[in-house]
Design a protein around this nucleic acid. Structure first.
Lengths: 197, 197
DNA sequence: GGAAGTGATGTGACTTGGTAACGTCACTGT
DNA sequence: ACAGTGACGTTACCAAGTCACATCACTTCC
């Protein structure tokens, strides 16, 4: 599989993602055509759609694995774990997929997504997918109906609250905590806020 | 403003919605073109896009008001109300917009939406919008940060769990409860499940 | 009561996202 | 050597969505 000297440049997929993020940041999402992205990546429109089902998905590629990370971790949690314990383990597993090197890229990505409704829509869909994955995994281990929904929603909420803090340099300028740490902290906060409802 | 005998048939918007739902149910969402919808409604593609920003939105028109119903109700809740109390009041206000006559239509709509990813994506976006509206309204009345998020997410969860029961004839075949009753019941269930986390 | 204006619609041309059929060629395994 | 295989390019096409412009019932103002 040595394509290094092949007919085409390697890492086509990665080049497409980089080109897409760059162009979206430069000119905005809807002012950028798939042809432009492909051209900057040194390829063509058809190849773009061979790698991604649609234009938006270039920014969300790889997130399909997140649901599996959550589900597997919940399934592997000890039988004695409460629903929120299992959710905590799942968040540990998911956040482990976000090493500090990815932080700057995630930050740029977030800005681009926040600036366009089509992208925010896709983001909402992905978020809903995470919640469904958590709910299903919890029900699989015997957690009854309303409780599983609640725990899943709470876990997803903790994940995104932690993501915001991880990416946003405004809070905690010096500490530079791990995503996993932030997620644990967010989950503790939410748990502590439950009696306030 | 008497258009009854005007150049065109009245109620264009409503005719477009009906045509869209019919065609989507008959042939599926992606097998139906906007031209077909417009033709069945006795108009043209351009007019369709004058009424709806995109093809999907024909099925979600009017839901923009739901966020405002929630926000206004939360703002109007008495100062003594807890976050979950305010959410309960908001759900009462929102569910009041779903009279029993709309149930059959809502049921057909739900089947169509569930059958297509683009539509499910839009639905997830709308759902996220409801959560944001609730969160903002709660924060406006002084509910602190993590608690507002929690209460909003819980309220949205209750709404959709109640919606499922309202629409699905499988459960409670005889009782035929009001959407508002079902929402209150769902909220109580979730509240009762909190200690199980 | 006639003229100018308004608002919802139709027409046609256009851009772009997305699909599909087909050809090309480096690389792989036999 | 030789028949795959897989990733890519080329071309043509369909449908979503935009835009500029024309039409005409109805309204308003003089």
């Amino acid at each position: 599989m040595l394509y290094a000297m092949g007919r085409w440049e390697p890492n086509t997929r990665e080049r497409l993602v980089r080109a897409a993020v760059e162009l979206f940041a430069e000119q905005g999402y809807d002012m950028t055509t798939v042809n432009e992205i492909a051209e900057r990546a040194g390829t063509t429109k058809t190849t773009f759609f061979r790698h991604f089902p649609d234009k938006r998905e270039a920014l969300f590629a790889g997130q399909d694995t997140h649901s599996r990370l959550l589900a597997d971790a919940v399934a592997a949690a000890p039988d004695t774990a409460t629903p929120l314990d299992a959710v905590g383990v799942a968040l540990d597993a998911l956040t482990a997929a976000f090493p500090p090197e990815r932080r700057a890229f995630a930050a740029r990505l977030r800005v681009v997504i926040a600036g366009n409704d089509e992208l925010r829509e896709r983001a909402a869909f992905k978020r809903a997918g995470l919640a469904v994955a958590l709910t299903d995994a919890l029900q699989q281990r015997g957690v009854p109906d309303p409780t599983a929904d609640l725990a899943a929603e709470l876990g997803v909420l903790a994940f995104y609250r932690a993501f915001d803090r991880w990416v946003d340099p405004a809070d905690d300028p010096a500490t530079d905590q791990t995503f996993t740490d932030l997620a644990r902290q967010a989950l503790r906060e939410l748990r502590a806020a439950l009696p306030e409802l």
